[in-house]
Computed example of a mutant assay.
Amino acid sequence: MTDLDQRITSTLRERAEGQVDIDRLTSRAVAQGRARRVRRRATLGGTAFGVAAVLGLGVAGGGALPVEVPWTAAKPAAPVAAPAPAAGVPNALARPDLVGTDPSLLHFGVDPARARYLSWQSALDLESAQLDLGGAAPVRFNLARSAEVAEELDAEGAAHIPEPATPPFDGQVVRVPRGGADSDWILRWQPAPGLFARLHTVAPNGGALQAARNALRFDAAYRCGGPLRLSALPEGARITNCGVWVERFPAGFNVSLVVIGSGDKLLKVDLQYAKSIVGARTDGNRMIGDRPAFVAEGGLNEMELLGFPKAHLTAIFGWPTVGGSTEADAATVLGGAQVAEHLDQPETW
């Protein structure tokens, strides 16, 4: 993973819900990239990255696993959004070496009778999700091919390490006191040799962690992009990050895909759907094939492909600090975008 990939991945991971903030993405992942790259090479060398700032705490103590009522067996009445199966793709147990190698895929799933997705993400090296187990606090899940990545990376690669510095992935629940009623609760284990899984929640007790572990499935693979696929990319470009946020579903959801080309040219594609959207732009100032598109003038360059009821499909391009993708790059990506016909019906994704 390059430094630029890593900073973008970190910024996207920090979002548990809603749309990724473009200003934050560009300022953290791009504008400071060159200086940080030099500094990190000088100071970090080949050392392993630290634990994520999500803990950022002092001493980790052992803790018994209190009993907590998990997600009820009855499925929610509202439609549930989840990744679509990826037929023919090996699962995590069969090919643990494939986890975190293709940002368009997830190598794990969730039993819908036991938990609900709030979001899911796939990036180079790490696959993850935010889960609702029916309690007040969500549970974060990470899956990676190394313990260091499973513990997460922050934007600087700096270490935020609770004791012990190298926690064992032994299936035990660890409590990290915060002060007050809530603590950090962490469960680490290895679903297969060469695979590292981590669950984390902030709550009065850690009962949701075992319920989340029981809800996870590693016997199938899934497509990350939900209702959006990109079938055409500029020459030399690749998708490095995929994230889908569905906490508000069926009222709405967001999909974000990051495309990086040669020379660190960066382009971000967003699909935003909301039932509350009334009306839509119909007058484009560009054409992509036989479809109208609109390019906003001035400021951050954004191209929208028109014609999606209650949804916006946009590509943001042209960050000059890294060479900048072009309007032609955005047209290529949007021209090959495939969007599900029924955005409010996950079974069609």
Rank of each mutant, 00 (worst) to 15 (best):
F196L: 02
G56D: 14
N214T: 09
R178A: 10
A94N: 01
V339C: 09
P204T: 03
V269K: 07
A87I: 13
S104I: 03
G62C: 00
Q272C: 02
A137S: 15
G109D: 10
L195T: 08
P346Y: 11
A48H: 04
Q210V: 13
E297V: 05
G135V: 04
R217I: 01
L257A: 01
P138T: 03
A220G: 10
Q6H: 08
G252C: 06
G299L: 06
T348Q: 14
L118M: 12
A237Q: 09
G61N: 10
P204W: 02
H342E: 14
D5H: 15
P83I: 01
E302T: 15
A150K: 06
H160G: 01
V99T: 05
G88K: 03
V333S: 04
V67T: 10
L4D: 02
I186E: 06
A147Y: 00
A328Q: 13
H107P: 00
V174E: 08
S262R: 14
L153W: 08
F253W: 06
A35F: 10
P164L: 05
S325Q: 03
L25A: 05
R116G: 07
T2R: 07
A232P: 01
I316P: 00
V333Q: 04
L267S: 04
M303N: 00
A155I: 13
Y117P: 12
V59G: 03
W71Q: 08
A340G: 15
I8R: 06
A181C: 05
V99L: 05
L4P: 01
V339A: 09
I161C: 05
A53D: 15
L126N: 03
V176W: 02
R34I: 07
A42W: 12
D264W: 04
T326R: 10
L306Y: 05
S262E: 15
P112K: 01
L209M: 09
L216H: 11
G335A: 12
L305H: 00
P250Q: 14
L300T: 13
G45E: 06
M287D: 10
C224M: 07
L143N: 06
L65T: 10
I316T: 15
E347V: 09
T332C: 02
I186L: 14
Q338T: 09
H312L: 12
R175M: 13
L195P: 10
A328F: 01
A29F: 02
E347Y: 00
T326H: 08
F169C: 12
V80D: 06
M287N: 11
L126S: 00
L187T: 01
S231L: 13
R281W: 11
